[in-house]
């Protein structure tokens, strides 16, 4: 779905051994790495590398919704802005939102709207920002998966994380997690996102040509991958907040600063803890 590459001859996306251009089997996910809490100013953040994708997600909120007339008196707004950096694609992209980014922002906002406990924060907005720094297809899935971690990092109350992955069809074979070439020259692409615990689908798009059977195969691949991604999300969040006493004493704490909310790890053992559940 990104830019078009020029090719001289016809490309075979799957070879006789059933291997794809990058050596993967049809049901293999690209390597994924997630890190939570990577930015200072944002209330929550996460960085993700997924194959050739590099995506940064950040959350502010709940905060006062602006402009005022958009405020919902009964609940928080959940607003996502997905953006691609000009240097994230082979042919430089002009800064600013294009129609594709606007559409992706909308469907991701709606996905998170399904899990955030909006009624707890009337008249506010939960603002989610996804920045694609390097693109290799599947950026909306990467962005959504990373943004989920950022929301949890920010302490935004929600029902569950959301995990997202796409499957498609290349050379007639249903495959998981298409990369850029496969997306450009393949026959179908179907990104989706689920609530891992319940299996509810909060995002679903599709373009191309799939039979009903192929669609079901694609969904099954994506759902399996989403469960694996969920493990990585959980692991990233746990890692962020697991610190031993040695770590504490090794590094000097940062200097005092005003208005620098630093959502860093930390929690008290029970014996030293004040009133519970503040």
């Amino acid at each position: 779905m990104e830019d078009i590459e020029h090719i001289q001859k016809e490309m075979k996306l799957i070879n006789e051994q059933g291997r794809r251009l990058d050596g993967r089997k049809p049901d293999e996910l690209r390597p994924v790495r997630i890190e939570a809490g990577v930015l200072r100013r944002a209330d929550g953040s996460a960085y993700m590398e997924w194959g050739g994708n590099k995506v940064l997600a950040a959350v502010y909120g709940p905060r006062e919704a602006h402009p005022r007339h958009l405020q919902d008196p009964a609940r928080a707004l959940v607003q996502c802005r997905y953006n691609m950096a000009p240097f994230s694609v082979s042919d430089r992209k002009r800064p600013g939102p294009d129609r594709r980014s606007v559409e992706i922002s909308k469907v991701i906002s709606e996905a998170f709207s399904a899990v955030v406990f909006k009624e707890q924060f009337p008249r506010t907005s939960v603002d989610i920002f996804i920045e694609v720094l390097q693109a290799d297809a599947g950026t909306r899935c990467a962005g959504l998966t990373a943004a989920s971690v950022a929301l949890a990092d920010a302490g935004v109350p929600m029902r569950d994380l959301v995990a997202s992955c796409a499957s498609g069809k290349i050379d007639g074979v249903v495959c998981l997690d298409l990369n850029k070439e496969e997306d450009n020259f393949g026959d179908a692409d179907c990104p989706m996102a689920i609530v891992p615990r319940t299996g509810e689908i909060v995002l679903l798009q599709m373009d191309g040509h799939l039979t009903y059977d192929e669609f079901q195969k694609a969904m099954s691949l994506s759902i399996g991958a989403a469960q694996r991604l969920y493990e990585l999300q959980r692991d990233a969040l746990r890692r962020r907040y697991s610190v031993t006493l040695e770590d504490i004493l090794k590094e000097p704490p940062s200097a005092p600063m005003v208005a620098a909310p630093s959502p860093e790890p930390g929690l008290p053992p029970e014996d030293d803890f004040g009133p519970e559940g503040i």
Binding site: L39, R41, R63, P97, E131
Partner: peptide, 13 residues
């Protein structure tokens, strides 16, 4: 230069 909104609560899209 893009001052993207995630960098600061004072940056707007």
């Amino acid at each position: 230069v893009e001052l993207i909104p995630m960098a600061s609560p004072t940056f707007e899209a």
